[in-house]
Design a protein around this nucleic acid. Structure first.
Lengths: 203, 203
DNA sequence: ATCGGAACTGCAACGTGTTTCTATTATGAC
DNA sequence: GTCATAATAGAAACACGTTGCAGTTCCGAT
């Protein structure tokens, strides 16, 4: 760990390094948003982030790492904006459907970005396990909050059944998302399919 | 349609063309089985199938098309061997778990091949919709047979609920498979997760 | 048997992810 | 301030999916 500048909680390096990392992720998201997975070209990211190609690879060892890291940051940003208010809805089903509907709409609002991030997520191999795990935890937390509603307490362990339910739902959500980003299902079909699955699992 | 040689049900071209197609898929599966997705290199497939690179691309317009077609053929072969006997098990849950366990074991027996085919399936975009649909139908049929057991009748339309259940299960199965091929879950975890999900959905 | 078009071969070339290398610059220890 | 080290820039080169093309071979119709 470096000795100077302990403004940060984790060891993210110097301010200059944190700034480079931020610029790189910004560029990644901008390019993904404009043209999807294919438009996130490493040379283009490097140029737009104003770093050398080698530096980009020093920060993110592959295009997949880069995109999954971008996904994690996006998710985090979104969550921190939303997670203050309790999830509306009377039953777990209603709350989960509300949350997923909202998330899905958000992603469909930027189809290119979603396509890029989803593709990367599905293509990631074991070397991306760390980044993937971050996203998985974010997803699980979001779903548990929705399932439990007011009864949700941070840090409390969910039961085995709750874990299983959350996992099935995120599997369905992911599959639906993949069908959508690859053009095999419409937004409506995705929404229907998710609702059906949620009602099936949460009854 | 060519006039000679109507041994085949669909129009698959001349015998020489069918043979080339077969050789290409054989080479694809052999290479995938040996080294996974990365080892299925178009030049290598062409060489091993004894066709020119351009010919390979005439038969399969991309690596993804090639691999998803290989998946469809593998699936078909497996199904035709299995689908004669009824699925053992007293309840839908038991039968579905039996079938998935068997299929999963089969895939885990050739991890490289499974990795290659699964990756391709998850990466496929709209241009591969036809091939994907074939695989999706195979999967749905397999699950419906398992859910209905002796009551299964070929051609009979499953109810909405049955369709939804089958779809959720295949989503979970696919996600589990992806976790496994990308090294994020062990075979045991996959089996457990699937069983839990099936019991959750089929109760 | 021949003709015309489709299919095939062999090969070069391009684009993009990834690696590698050298020269230069920034950073922390003393 | 100086030095050793790590980080970065810049650019070339490699790997593999994909495309394009000139010449050759195959195949069905006549």
């Amino acid at each position: 760990m470096t000795t100077t500048n302990s403004l940060t909680y984790d060891d993210l390096g110097s301010a200059a390094q944190r700034d480079r990392r931020r610029r790189i992720l910004d560029a990644t998201i901008a390019l993904a948003s404009k043209g999807g997975f294919d438009a996130v070209q490493m040379r283009a990211v490097a140029e737009q982030a104003d770093v050398a190609l080698g530096t980009l690879y020093r920060y993110f060892p592959s295009k997949i790492h880069l995109l999954v890291s971008a996904l994690a940051r996006q998710f985090e940003d979104t969550q921190s904006m939303v997670s203050r208010k309790p999830v509306p809805g009377e039953t777990p089903s209603e709350r989960v459907i509300y949350v997923l509907r909202r998330a899905t709409r958000g992603m469909q609002g930027d189809a290119n970005l979603t396509e890029a991030l989803t593709r990367a997520f599905m293509f990631a191999d074991a070397s991306v396990a760390t980044e993937i795990h971050v996203v998985g935890m974010q997803l699980t937390t979001m779903l548990n909050r929705a399932i439990k509603g007011d009864a949700y307490v941070e840090g409390e362990q969910p039961s085995d059944e709750e874990v299983a339910v959350a996992r099935v739902i995120s599997d369905v959500w992911l599959s639906a998302l993949v069908s959508w980003v690859t053009g095999r299902a419409t937004a409506e079909e995705v929404a229907d399919h998710i609702e059906t699955a949620v009602r099936l699992v949460l009854r």
